[in-house]
Structure formats: structure tokens, C-alpha cells
Design a protein around this nucleic acid. Structure first.
Length: 849
RNA sequence: GGGCGCUUAGCUCAGUUUGGUUAGAGCAGCUGGCUUACAACCAGCAGGUCGGGGGUUCGAGUCCCUCAGCGCCCACCA
């Protein structure tokens, strides 16, 4: 350390290395980002931080988005807001189940008894069965470890979250609040139980919601089948799912299709099975698809469900929940031929049954031509491996506007009231709400999740009375109905006639995640806190979960609070590899955040992330991170230089100094306005643009004057004061983006954290007379000509200039004259002549070294 | 099938909301320079018919129409 100016301690060789660990530790010790809950709602800026899904490693894309909204958080904190910036870990649900299965090599078998002192050795790839209790213990154990790893990354990249506001989505508080919110939904009639055809994943053996489905291009084949008319003729039907033939309940045609007009109302018999089914008309039947006649099965796709419901058809289900056809022969297959055909497919997977059915049809002559191979979009669970089947099952639903136009309009109105950044992301929300085709299916047949806090009574025969769920008492939450007993019963009555059973299902993870504002703010557990942070100011998140997390959060808030959950939504973009492909583990192009922080520093990584506009897909470009690192180093060096002579108290009198500060005032206004519009990248761009010209031009021009070798008179003090002011302001402009290096420099000469310092405001420069930025530009331009001449003459920049003649109109000459002395020093001029003339020119005659 | 976004220098991107000097950065390239903040640095040079076409306008990277390519979202996909 060297003390150049009293109170300023600048290291001899400042370095960006090691700043992450140093400042993370001090920020934690000093509680720099700790939330002060005594502030009023007006003084608070509340963020609904996305809880990342815990896994073995944090994806760079996650860090990318988090750093962006961290810069916004830092801006508002410096603006004087108390920032409520919680951090959550999403350790609920299927991703955790899969991670535990893969990591340890185990699987959950609910029939096994709990082993109190089980020791689990790692054996990836194995599938050792274990009890539900042991499995859940492992889930908690592994996620706790994963969360520590994630926390370290968040600290390394300088997220200014409050670590005392941490939650997990499977923790007690999340379970309690999920269950409480559900009980409220139930009491208000917004949640209901219904037995209906539902999309079903045969691997996970659970129902899934519309929001979790995706279409995938899948190989299939059209099979043209002959259905037989009473008059001896045939109706040909194209299907991609001949294996469902036994589940056929009708044939449907368009009401105005002339080919089938006479057949409507008649009966046909199905091929192979000889089951009589009606030919019906429905406008959804498309005359241009296939033969124009379709078979309706229960259920091959969602159109079947519509037809089944609207045409009042019987239910003939043959697909089991594990994706195989049932083994027992359905009772509507009565003929001997039907029985033989059924023998061939009973118990097979749908795929095997399809092949088998096709060959039987070919044998019987009821297959027209060969199956025609096609590729078509088929619906999958987004985390699933096989196409979804549709099975009838009893599930919990929450009303979401799909079947209630008023509610749908209210949700669309909510989307319009929200401020979206960028604005066009609003369209995705509107499309989603417009396209909802059913209420939100919230129950899952899984082991790890938040249980429904209800039981069902059993009648005297031991049948479950689903119509009369027994809700838990809210004071008892969180509860597990598998172990807890409903009010008015005792444990001995579990599963007994006249007793009760616990609801075996758990909630969709989004049923919990949709309550992150309530969880983070301890809704009803801590009404004082919740009142200070809700509704929140900002929801930052990725674009792929608008239909899930964003929509569900808006919905829950509407239902529970009749308000928006937040006023702003900021959507980040994707990370692409340099070939503009989306990064993914399978492509092997994933770079870890940890390694990037090591190579380029947290500030370098943050610079790259914050250069990207909100909602814009961005390449993971190490070159940009190197630039960020260099910017951080430049900040250190320029600060060292400025602070080697900066002293407070002087008055800024010189025109060039005033011009520089006037320009900086404009930059401050622009950066502030950009941040207020959530355009953090523009704030960075403005600060960076100014900083480089500050270093290249202004610093070079005033260097000699600021040194003040001859005297410490007015001009020298003016330069020093201007440098000091400019540095202070620029450090604060950079603080949201480069929190480590700016804090380091701040600590050399100021008390307290820069991150609690006030964001620069134009009135900080109120004591400085306005200068003319054109003066600085004119002088810098002339200096540029001098440099260019020296460079093109292959001379050192130190080389003296024998004579410099500036020709131009009165305005130009006056501008140059304002910086005359600085120009002479910076350019090493021996003579400077200002000549009036119509054509501006700058003539340089170099001297000898 | 519908919708949204993108297309600007060899590369990565700003700039488009509100039309206005010769369209900006950085990286890579090239030419120089150890200059008392910085050689992990500095100075300088070169590089663009702003995807194609049409229109509005005194004036278009920016507004309108259209076409193409890429990406994404949604869709009842027999």
C-alpha cells in the first residue's frame, strides 16, 4: 500500500485476482445485502427470484439470467430501495427423484418397510429397491449437498441475494404454504376432484398437465382398415393406432361429406373384432384427412376425448397405466374370432400390439395396402420417453379460466397490466391463456412432492367416498395424510370400513412454485413481512416457463389475493454455443460457470451476461468475458492513477474539466433512464463508452496539469477535483455490473460498501458550472490528429511536435483554445498556432526525438 | 396451420420504442510504440449496398407491405 493523498490507500500493483473470495466474505460479514424488514412497502424493491432446479451442476444459462437481474437489483439498491432478494432452491418433484435414482442407483418401492439406519453405497446404474421413507431421506440428503454447491456459485458470481431469505420448494414452509393455498382453493371451489380422461405418462405412471407436454416428431404409419357395412360394403378408415381397434366405439365423418351421407346413423362392424359401432357425424371430422372417416377409440388422442364427450359414447378402455394392453379379454369382445385376435395382443406393449394387429389385419384381408410410414407430431411428457396415453383417472384440478370465460378474460387482463421486458414476451402468455383447453391438473401419482392435505372417508363396505374429502386443519400444516390422522378419527381407523384413507397423491411442482412470492414472503406465517413485500416488483425468469411458472403464479395470485403477484416481468434469453446452437449436455458443449469465473473473473463473466439485451439469445462467448476482465483491470489501473493525485475540496474551474463532467452528467441520466426501463445493457454500454473516452482522451489531456509538478494552483486543483468526481461517479455506474472491482477501488478511498452508496444523480454536479462538451471533443480530435501523425510516421508518441497549426472557423479555434495548455502538454507540442480559415485542417510538423 | 423474434464489419453484438450529421463497440486482422495508471498495455489503420424486393418521406438500419433464411412458441397431429 502507498499513501499518496491522505486517506487514500492504493496498492502498488492492483489485481483482479482473488477479489471474489475477498469481497464475498466481507459482504457476508458486513451484511451488505441483508434485507432490512423494518422498511415500508414504498421503500422496498421485491424480487421473486427463480429457484433453480437443484442438480449436480449449475447451468451457465442460469447464471446468465441471474447476473442480469442482479444488476437490476443492485441498481435499485443504490437508488435507495431496500431490496428484498430471496434465494430459493427447487428440490421438489421429479428432477430430484431422477437425480437420486441415478446418483445412488436406487429406486423407490413403496411396499418396502422403512429401514431406520440404512447406509446407502453409491452404485450408479443399479436399481436397488428401497422404501418410500428411505428414498425421501436420500432426496433431502442429496439436494442439501447440491444446494451448497449452487450457493457457492451464486457467491462466486456476486449475486446480491439475502442469504437469510433462503427457502427450498420441498421445505416445511413451502409444503405448509402449498397446502394452505390448496385448502383455500378447495374451500372456495377453485379446486375440485374429477374422474376424466387424462394425459398419462406410462413410464412415470402419473398424470401430467397440459403445461408439461410437448410435441415431438415421431415415426408412425397410416393403416387403412376396412369397417364392414350391413349392406356388404366397406367404410375405409385411416389410423395411426390400429392397436386401439378393440377400443373403438364409433366411426365419425363430417356431416356434409357426400361420400358418407347415407352411412350416418347406421352401424358398421370393426375389422378383426366384429364389434358393432355407430357411424356418426361431427364437424371436427376432416374430410381431407385420410379417407374422411375416422375411428373413435377410448382413447387414442384428444380429439377422441372430444368426440367421446360430445357424442355421448361409451368408454371401452384397453390400455393399462403401464402402457400395455390389459390381459383379460374385454367383455364387449364376444365372438370367437375376436377372442383369438385379443389373445394375440393381450398384455403387449402398444407398440408390439400395433405390429401384431397389422399382421392380423393383413391376414384377414381387412388391411388395405401396406401401412404408409409417416413422421408426425406426437404428444409427450416433456421429461418422458414414450408418447402419452390417455387414461381415465381421478385427479385434482384447479380452475384456470379454460372453462370459464370471465376468468380467462381476467387472466388476459392481468397479462396486459403487467410490464413485460421485453414487451413482445407478453404475446406468449396471451397465446397460452387463449389456448388453454382444460383446467389445471395438479395431482401427480409420485412419491416425492407436497402431499394433498386431505383424507377421504370410507363407507361401511370400505369404498372411498371421494365426494367428501376431509381437509386438514390449517394449524396442522404441513402434514402427510399417509401418517397424520384427520380430525375426529384415530390411527386405527386408517383403511378400515367406516374409517378413512389419506389422499395418496402429491401436487404438481408448479402448484408449489406458483407460490414463490408467498413462500419467500412467509404468507400468513409472517403477515407483517408479507405486507411489506407483496405484490412484488419483479419476476425475472426464462422464456420456456411462461406457460408454467409465470402463468400459474399469476393464476394463484388472482385466486388468493385478487391481484397481480408483481408489476414487472423480465424474460432472459437462451445461451447458445458459438455455432448458435442451444447448449446442452448431450452435445458436450457445456461450459461450467465455475471454470469461467476462474478464467475470466466474476466481473468478466458478468460483463458478458450484462452486455446481452433482455430476452435475446446470446452466444457463450469467452472473448466477451476476456473483454470484461480487461475492463475490470482498466478500472483498477485508471483508478490507481486518479487516486494517486485526487484530492477533494478543489473547485472545478477549467473548461475541459467542466466539459467532461457535463458529458458525464448526460451519461448518468441516460444510464439511469435505461435501468428504469430494465435495459441494463444500455446502462452498461453508456458507462463503458464514456469510460474509454475518459481514459483515452481526457486522462491523457489533463495528466500533466493534474500532476501539478510546477504548482498546485487552480488549474491543477480543478483537474484533480474533476478526476475525483468523475471516478466516484463512474465507479458507481459500473457497480451493478462489476461489483468486485468497483468495491475494491471504493475501499481504497471511501468508507462503507459502494453497493450501499447512492446511485449517481445529476445534482451531484450541481456545483460545477456547465461546460461545453464540444470543447473537449474538439481538443480530443486535434490530439487524435497528432497521434495519427506520429503513428503513421512510425514515431513514438513521446516524439515532440515542432509546430502544430489548427485552422478553422472561430468556433473551432475557440474550442481548441480552451484546452490549449493541456493539448500542448499531452501532444508534447513546441508551438501551437491557431489560424482562422474556411476549411478546417490540422497541420503537424514533427520534431526530432 | 397460426404467432413471436432474429437477419447490421470475417466473428460476437449495440443502435429500431420517438425516422435526422460521414451506421457504433469489442474480438480477430494489419501497422507501429516499453508512454512516470495500465505490455494481460497503448496508439493507429483497414473492414459494412444494415437479409432481398417494393413503398411512405425532403430524408429510412429505424415506419409500412412483401419474400427468403434461421430460431422459438402455440395448435383437436384420425
Amino acid at each position: 500500500m502507498s499513501e499518496t493523498v491522505p486517506g487514500v490507500r492504493v496498492p502498488q500493483r492492483p489485481s483482479v485476482d482473488g477479489l471474489e473470495a475477498k469481497w464475498d466474505r466481507r459482504w457476508q460479514e458486513q451484511g451488505t445485502y441483508r434485507f432490512d424488514r423494518t422498511k415500508s412497502r414504498q421503500e422496498i424493491y421485491a424480487i421473486d427470484t427463480p429457484p433453480p432446479t437443484v442438480s449436480g451442476s449449475l447451468h451457465l444459462g442460469t447464471v446468465f439470467g441471474y447476473v442480469q437481474f442482479d444488476s437490476v437489483a443492485r441498481f435499485w439498491r443504490m437508488r435507495g430501495k431496500e431490496v428484498f432478494f430471496p434465494v430459493g432452491w427447487d428440490d421438489n418433484g421429479l428432477p430430484t427423484v431422477r437425480r437420486v435414482q441415478d446418483h445412488y442407483g436406487v429406486r423407490c418401492d413403496p411396499t418396502l418397510p422403512y429401514q431406520p439406519d440404512a447406509r446407502i453405497e453409491l452404485e450408479p446404474g443399479a436399481e436397488r429397491p428401497m422404501s418410500r421413507g428411505n428414498f425421501i431421506e436420500l432426496c433431502h440428503e442429496l439436494t442439501a449437498r447440491d444446494e451448497q454447491v449452487f450457493e457457492q456459485v451464486f457467491r462466486d458470481v456476486g449475486l446480491s441475494v439475502s442469504w437469510d431469505l433462503t427457502y427450498t420448494t420441498i421445505g416445511d414452509r413451502s409444503r405448509r404454504i402449498s397446502q394452505r393455498a390448496f385448502l383455500h382453493n378447495l374451500a372456495r371451489g377453485e379446486a375440485y376432484l374429477s374422474e376424466a380422461p387424462t394425459m398419462w405418462d406410462v413410464d412415470m405412471q402419473t398424470a401430467v398437465a397440459q403445461a408439461e407436454m410437448e410435441d415431438r416428431l415421431t415415426a408412425g404409419a397410416y393403416h387403412r382398415l376396412r369397417f364392414h357395412r350391413r349392406d356388404g360394403g366397406d367404410i375405409e378408415v385411416d389410423t395411426t393406432r390400429p392397436e386401439l381397434l378393440a377400443a373403438c366405439v364409433a366411426v365419425v365423418v363430417h356431416p356434409e361429406d357426400p361420400r358418407y351421407g347415407d352411412a350416418v346413423g347406421s352401424e358398421v362392424t370393426t375389422p378383426l373384432f366384429g364389434v358393432a359401432v355407430p357411424v356418426l357425424a361431427h364437424p371436427l371430422a376432416d374430410p381431407d384427412k385420410g379417407t374422411g372417416a375416422a375411428m373413435i377409440c377410448t382413447f387414442g388422442d384428444t380429439t377422441d376425448v372430444v368426440w367421446w364427450r360430445e357424442l355421448n359414447l361409451p368408454s371401452r378402455s384397453i390400455v393399462r397405466r403401464d402402457g400395455r394392453l390389459q390381459t383379460e379379454r374385454p367383455d364387449w369382445l364376444t365372438t370367437e374370432a375376436a377372442a383369438r385376435a385379443w389373445e394375440a395382443v393381450a398384455g403387449r406393449t402398444t407398440k408390439a400390439a400395433q405390429t401384431e394387429t397389422a399382421s392380423l389385419l393383413a391376414e384377414s384381408g381387412e388391411l388395405v395396402g401396406e401401412p404408409r410410414r409417416i413422421e408426425h407430431e406426437v404428444r409427450y411428457y416433456e421429461r418422458g420417453e414414450h408418447p402419452l396415453e390417455i387414461v381415465a383417472s381421478r385427479q385434482w384440478y384447479i380452475r384456470n379460466g379454460a372453462r370459464d370465460e370471465d376468468r380467462r378474460q381476467a387472466l388476459l387482463g392481468a397479462g396486459r397490466t403487467l410490464s413485460w421486458h421485453p414487451d413482445f414476451m407478453r404475446v406468449r402468455y396471451e397465446h397460452w391463456v387463449d389456448g388453454l383447453n382444460g383446467d389445471w391438473l395438479v395431482s401427480r401419482q409420485q412419491v416425492f412432492g407436497v402431499p394433498f392435505p386431505v383424507w377421504f372417508p370410507l363407507d361401511e363396505e370400505g369404498n372411498v367416498i371421494h365426494a367428501r374429502p376431509i381437509p386438514a386443519d390449517e394449524s396442522s400444516l404441513p402434514i402427510d395424510p399417509q401418517s397424520a390422522v384427520p380430525p375426529g378419527y384415530d390411527q386405527a381407523q386408517r383403511g378400515r370400513p367406516g374409517g378413512f384413507v389419506g389422499d395418496p397423491d402429491v401436487m404438481d411442482t408448479w402448484a408449489t412454485s406458483s407460490l414463490t412470492p408467498q413462500i419467500a414472503g412467509s404468507w400468513e406465517d409472517d403477515p407483517d413481512l408479507f405486507g411489506r413485500i407483496f405484490p412484488m416488483d419483479l419476476r425475472p425468469q426464462g422464456p420456456e416457463i411462461i406457460r408454467t411458472w409465470l402463468f400459474a403464479t399469476v393464476l394463484r395470485s388472482q385466486l388468493e389475493h385478487a391481484s397481480l403477484p408483481w408489476s414487472n416481468v423480465s424474460i432472459n434469453g437462451w445461451i447458445l454455443d458459438p455455432d448458435r446452437k442451444k447448449m446442452s449436455k448431450s452435445k458436450g458443449n457445456v461450459i461450467t460457470p465455475e471454470s469461467l469465473v476462474g478464467q475470466h473473473g466474476a466481473d468478466g463473466l458478468r460483463y458478458w451476461a450484462c452486455r446481452a439485451a433482455p430476452g435475446t439469445d446470446t452466444a457463450a462467448d469467452p472473448a466477451q468475458m476476456r473483454v470484461g476482465r480487461r475492463l475490470a483491470i482498466k478500472v483498477l489501473n485508471a483508478s490507481k492513477f486518479v487516486l494517486s493525485m485526487a484530492e477533494g475540496g478543489g473547485e472545478v474551474t477549467e473548461p475541459l474539466d467542466r466539459a467532461m463532467l457535463t458529458r458525464l452528467g448526460g451519461v448518468v441520466a441516460g444510464a439511469t433512464e435505461a435501468f428504469e426501463r430494465y435495459q441494463y445493457h444500455q446502462a452498461l454500454d453508456r458507462a463503458e463508452g464514456f469510460f474509454w473516452s475518459f481514459c483515452d482522451d481526457y486522462l491523457e489531456l489533463v495528466k500533466s496539469r493534474a500532476y501539478g509538478t510546477s504548482d498546485a494552483g487552480g488549474p491543477t486543483r480543478s483537474a484533480r477535483q474533476a478526476l475525483s468526481l468523475a471516478l466516484s461517479i463512474q465507479l458507481r455506474l459500473f457497480a451493478p455490473f462489476l461489483p468486485f472491482v468497483t468495491e475494491e477501488v471504493w475501499s481504497w478511498w471511501r468508507n462503507g460498501s459502494i453497493h450501499r452508496a447512492r446511485w449517481p444523480e445529476p445534482n451531484e454536479l450541481a456545483g460545477v458550472d456547465r461546460g461545453d462538451p464540444a470543447a473537449l471533443e474538439a481538443v480530443a480530435e486535434v490530439l487524435g490528429v497528432v497521434r495519427r501523425t506520429k503513428t503513421s510516421e512510425k514515431r513514438s508518441l513521446r516524439c515532440p511536435v515542432e509546430r502544430l497549426e489548427v485552422i478553422g472557423d472561430a468556433g473551432r479555434l475557440a474550442s481548441v483554445a480552451l484546452g490549449r495548455d493541456d493539448l500542448v502538454e499531452a501532444g508534447n507540442l513546441r508551438e501551437l498556432v491557431l489560424t482562422p480559415g474556411p476549411e478546417p485542417a490540422t497541420l503537424v510538423r514533427l520534431g526530432e526525438d
